[in-house]
Every structure is written in C-alpha cells, then in structure tokens.
Amino acid sequence: MHELPVTESILNIVLKHAEKNRVSRVVSITLHIGELSDLEDRWLQHYFDYLSRQTLAGGAKLRIERLPIVLKCRNCDQTMHITRKDLGAIECPNCAGIGDFSLVSGRQYYIKDMEAV
C-alpha cells in the first residue's frame, strides 16, 4: 500500500522544519488524517521508524488524529458528521434527503505540529 511514499513525505517535511528550527531531536509528530484515507497507523509508524533511523527524527512517535467525514446536504445546507460505517445509508437528519451531499472534509493529510528538543 501507499504508506511508504506518504511516510517519506512526512519525514522530508519534518526534517525541513527540524533544520529550520535548529532542533537536535524530534520526539513526536502530530498528524491529522481524514477518515476517508486508508492509511494504517501501524504501518506508518513502522515505515517511519525504518526511514528515520539515522536522522534527527529517529525514534519519533507519530500521533495520528483522525478527523471525521463531514458532509453538507445540498438540499437544505445541513452539515453532518458521519463515520465510514454510516456509508451506504446516509440520510439528511434535517430534510431526510438522500444521495445529494457535498464532501466538506474527511480527506485531510496534514502535519499539524511536532515536539522536539
């Protein structure tokens, strides 16, 4: 799966910020990942440990925060938070409309911050 290139990207961005801020070691990294993304936390950490071995970010812990899927009913503008389990049977809680929602969020792939010494 695509955890490897994603992890490479995370590491590059983190190292850039580590250098810019002249830190000696990155301790943790907080990621915001939308529920719609199929990333496996375990593999991300695993690849990260491997790729970051000889860098300032070696041993850093990835804290992965999942962000909910948010839809907006195009019929009545109601927004709603859903989980993947709701897919296939979503009904607008306000107007009972089905099959006409725009995706407001749920696709995030974002590095929020990092802790370092």
Binding site: I10, V14, V23, I29, Y110, I111, D113, V117
Partner: peptide
C-alpha cells in the same frame, strides 16, 4: 526542554 513547533503542511 521539549518544545512544540507548528508545522502546518499538507503531506502530499
């Protein structure tokens, strides 16, 4: 000495 640094970047 642990400090927090904002990164705020899209991974992709």
């Amino acid at each position: 000495g642990i400090k927090l640094f904002e990164v705020r970047e899209d991974i992709l």
